[in-house]
Every structure is written in C-alpha cells, then in structure tokens.
Amino acid sequence: MTSVRTAPHRHNPMALRIRAMWQSDLAWAFRRSPVAMVSFVVVVLLVSGALLAPLIAPHDPFDPATLNLMNGFTAPGAPNAFTGESFWLGTDDQGRDVFSTILYGMRISLLVGFAAVLLGMAIGVTLGLIAGYRGGWTETIIMRVADVQLTFPAILVAMLIFGIAKGFTPVEYRDQIAIWVLILAIGLSDWVQFARVVRGATLVETKKEYVQAAQLIGRSGTAIMIRHILPNVLSPVLVIATISLALAIIAEATLSFLGVGAPPTQPSLGTLIRIGQGFLFSGEWWILFFPACTLLALALSVNLLGDWLRDALNPKLR
C-alpha cells in the first residue's frame, strides 16, 4: 500500500485522525471487500433502527392505549377491514404493528447480545491473561474448567444457568429480571473461547523482551498484564467478539423461542418468532416471517463481518 503523506493540519486533529483511519490497513481491506461493506451497511441500518425505535416506530407496542384490537391480523400493506388503517408489515393478533414490534424486539436482542459478549469477554480475557502470565496451578485450574465447559454445547450451558437463576428468583420478579438472567447465562456460556485465545497469545507475549524489561524495572504483575500485554493480544479478541455476537444473538433467539428467555411482555426477536409460530397454520404468515428475516439478516451480516475481520487482521493471509 502506498501512503500519501499530506501536510499535517495542526489545528484540526479530528480531520487528521479520520484521514489516518481512512488510510489504515484495515480500512483498505474494508474498501476492497463488497461483502464486508454490504454486511456493514445492513448492521448499521438494523442497529440504528433499533436505537431510534421510539422515533421511527409508527406505534409503541408496549403502550396498550395505542393498540386497537380491531386492527388484529391485518395483512401487510392492505387496509384493515374494520378500521381502514393499513400497516407496512401487517399486525399480530393483538393489533400490534409488526414493524414496530420488530424494531423494539431488536433492541432486546441486541442488548442481550452485546451485553452477553461483553460479559463473556471480560471474564475470558481476565482469566486468559492470568492463566497465561501466572502459569502453574492457576493456569491448570482455569484451563481445566474451560475444557470441561467446552465438552458441553454452549446453548445447553446457557439453558442450565438460566434454569438455576430462575430457581433463585421469587416468582413475581422472574419476568422483570429475565433479560439480565439471559445476559448472565449467555455470557457465562461463551467466555471459554476468549480465555483460550488470550492465554495462547499471552504465553507468546510474555517471552518477549518488552515484558522482561517491564519486569526488570519492577512493575507489578497486574500492571504488566493490563498496560503491556493486554493491548498486544486484543486483535484476536476483536474477531472472536464479533463472531460471538452473532452466536449470542442466535442463542438468545433460540432460548426465547423455546420459552426460556425474554418474556412476552418484553419480546425479543426470538419471542416474536415463538408468537408467530402459533399463527402459521391459520395463514397469518407475516407475524412469523418478518421477525425471522430480521433475525437472519442480523446474524448473517454480523457473522460475515466477523469472517472478514478475521481475514483482514491475519497478516498471513494478506
């Protein structure tokens, strides 16, 4: 890659930073990959749709005052037989606008996805750093636990944690905290990948001279791990985080679909699909179809972005 150096604008650091970002290797790889660009646009559209839901959504699906039961089962685009109102993607059995429920459902799906990955990442990176840097029996215990957990499919672990946490909460609070339990369950089920990769990378970094130099000048182990090693092991973490996000979104949808996730009062995309499945036989296909498509588009484009990021950050493939 040729870099064209322009005179630095001393008084405009923001423009300078944007220019540097545009000329970075990663941006270059991005501009060369149509798949990455399309996926990125889809993700940005869906995420901003979810963030701006209260502004864009034609109806507030959680406000019973705006709902009209007469509007129930309106087909997409067609005016309702009783009220004459028409809805872009139709309505469900309670007259809720499907487009609005999808926008609000995505908020839950994305919240759970992002928070679960952040939790899994925090646990995994911390334990991976400690295991790789300290070694010895600390490492043995952490990695054995990781091995045992890896024997079981993540979704099973998440279900189990969900079930146990549900047992600890009094019945009247179960629906309110279901979202947080979901985050906890999915987060705890996917820390292993992070821990394994970070431990591997830390083992390599620890042998390098800069770490020995830091040890010689007497920095504490914690400081070396956080200030010196962590920044150097972050790029594989970023890749795993992106792929984990797609998996977490699907895991959340699966749990909610099975009825052990987001409650109907706070429906995520999975809950919406669960609701829609009930109307498959009576011909109201749109209640199921649009949430399912949204889930697919979201999971697929995040996944493709993760794949692209893995290739772009791996210097061996360039």
Binding site: T254, L258, I273, L280, F281, A292, L295, A299
Partner: peptide, 18 residues
C-alpha cells in the same frame, strides 16, 4: 449452517405441513 435450528424446523413445517 447459518440458519438457526429452530428456523429450519419452522421452514420445514411451513412447506411440508402447511
């Protein structure tokens, strides 16, 4: 590979049962 299991099930139900 990219379709979640439960969506495959629903899709099959829709095509072959409905």
């Amino acid at each position: 590979v990219s379709l979640p299991t439960f969506l495959i099930g629903i899709l099959l139900i829709y095509v072959f049962s409905v």
